[in-house]
Design a protein around this nucleic acid. Sequence first.
DNA 1: GTCTATAGCTGGATAGAC
DNA 2: GTCTATCCAGCTATAGAC
Lengths: 226, 226
Amino acid sequence: MTIKPQRNKADQGETSKERILASAESVFAEWGFDGASVRRISEEAGVPVALINYHFGSKAGLYRAIFEKRAPAIMDQRIAGLRLARAEPDLDRRIDLVVKALIYPMFSLRGESPSADFGRMIVREMSDPQSEARGIFRDMFDPVAEMLTDAISKCFPDWTLEEVHWAYHTMLGAMMIVMTDNGRMARLSGGRVSSDNWEEAARHMCAILVAGLKYRDRDQTRGSED
Amino acid sequence: MTIKPQRNKADQGETSKERILASAESVFAEWGFDGASVRRISEEAGVPVALINYHFGSKAGLYRAIFEKRAPAIMDQRIAGLRLARAEPDLDRRIDLVVKALIYPMFSLRGESPSADFGRMIVREMSDPQSEARGIFRDMFDPVAEMLTDAISKCFPDWTLEEVHWAYHTMLGAMMIVMTDNGRMARLSGGRVSSDNWEEAARHMCAILVAGLKYRDRDQTRGSED
DNA sequence: GTCTATAGCTGGATAGAC
DNA sequence: GTCTATCCAGCTATAGAC
């Protein structure tokens, strides 16, 4: 066991590598991959530019490192949520747990320290065609996404594959907008509703989505495709 | 001996201004505002860079011009849809029309010529904190958004303002993901479901969202915040 | 209106001292 | 590991001929 060198108060115990990651997260979230410059990140972190390339190889390497640092915690929470859902035999109650397994781990980001920014990074990555080349979703998010679609289809055994995947993507999309809201909700509501309260956000969204899945075929005849 | 460059067949009577707008739409959609370069746009349009600044003043001017060209048609369709909804006295049927007034005009974009790209541009603009400075949403989208939230609240007279705005944003988010899907849906479904068929996309999404709004309070006691 | 040429910057990345 | 200094490719925008 090695003992970490104790830093003084000014450092707040952070290594320069950690400071770079922290400021990169906020700069990438605000400016996007292309709009962000390593110079700006280095300034915000209070380190020279060269140090970024020393630690992370390149701008792209730094970008990926942020996802590698943040994604596992979210995936683990989703997997844990799915384990709870699987243990619920009543399918009506189970879908509720599945939806929450998807939504809550993402929203809880907004609670902790700097990481509403990471939520914004995810949305930008998701809406960027170049993301396919980076392969971040393929590598870090797809495995759990498959577990989730699988869990949905087990809750609705009579659904087609189309219905399952559209349900999943509808939920994913709804989630995106909260991670990305730039005060538009506040503007449209005359300042009376804001998206900052993530617990309320999650509650409202889960209510709509769970009901949407459970009752989607209630009022209309089932689609007759294929 | 030099012959005045005659428009070739490929031009099909398009002015250079129109060609710039068309290629800008696809380049901005693929690379984002910062990632796109006016050089790349000019190459794709087959015009010299200077012409872009002549016609549109700046890169930002060109960007905005695309929204000014495309947004009105969508807004008009939404307004028309809302007019139909207002004429429907049965509130259960009316909310169905309101949701469709929001969703369908956006999805119908994917039907016509080059404009899945415009859908992608909207999503990127929506997930970009810098968009507030550009003011595109404020100027071109917010007025109709207010009409829509208003229509929702008329369908559910007992809802709080929070519930209305969360419902609207949930729908908006769900829509975003279809406009932006980069083949991830196809990947996750093993190639068996794709988001290319916009009619099916709209159908699935509306089914979930309408049911979500109508039945969101069916299984749980109403939130007690006020 | 359309073009060539270029000004004036800012970008990512690296070399090499310490 | 950390820093200074620097390379040079790429960017937006404009000047000015036609």
